[in-house]
């Protein structure tokens, strides 16, 4: 950094560069919003799915599990648990928790009703049908 490159030049590049890249980011985000309907499975956002997402949130499932690879890494990925296990297994599993197996990682029992279990499964099915560019690499998540 020689004497000819002054602080005010650096400042101007900062403001100019920031504004340029903010605008570029907004343009890309805008285009993403236009493209999403083709990929995000919004056609299947039923009442049941919406309620399932709420149950997912208010029970903080993300505090142990990941969903599409985001969240915690303590318990299996659930973005593809629907094709991995199927609806009946998932419901039976959630009801059977906790396993109580000594030393094994535990999942609480949330005392869901049958309707709530159906909603959660609907949400997990909807999530598994989002176009994720072939992620995860295999069914184990």
């Amino acid at each position: 950094m020689s004497g000819t490159f002054t602080k005010s030049m650096a400042r101007n590049i900062f403001y100019g560069g920031t504004v340029f890249f903010v605008l570029l980011f907004l343009a890309l985000s805008f285009d993403t919003m236009k493209e999403l309907p083709k990929r995000d499975n919004r056609a299947n956002l039923t009442e049941s799915v919406i309620n399932g997402k709420k149950l997912w949130e208010v029970n903080n499932c993300i505090g142990c599990h990941s969903l599409l690879g985001e969240g915690a890494y303590f318990a299996p990925e659930l973005g593809n648990v629907y094709p991995r296990r199927g609806p009946e297994f998932i419901k039976a599993w959630i009801q059977a928790m906790p396993t109580g197996a000594p030393g094994r990682r535990q999942m609480p029992n949330f005392g869901f009703t049958d309707k709530e279990l159906d909603d959660l499964v609907a949400f997990l099915k909807y999530s598994s049908e989002i176009n994720t560019a072939n992620w995860p690499p295999n069914i184990e998540g």
């Binding site: 900062f14 560069g17 920031t18 890249f21 903010v22 570029l24 980011f25 890309l28 285009d31 993403t32 493209e35 999403l36 990929r39 995000d40 499975n41 599409l68 690879g69 985001e70 989002i130 176009n131 994720t132 560019a133 992620w135 995860p136």
Partner: peptide
């Protein structure tokens, strides 16, 4: 930081249903 980091947000948009 900002020139790389703002568009760099895209490294979280690989597999969550966003365009490729």
């Amino acid at each position: 930081a900002l020139v790389s980091g703002i568009i760099g947000t895209g490294h979280h948009y690989f597999w969550i249903g966003t365009p490729e």
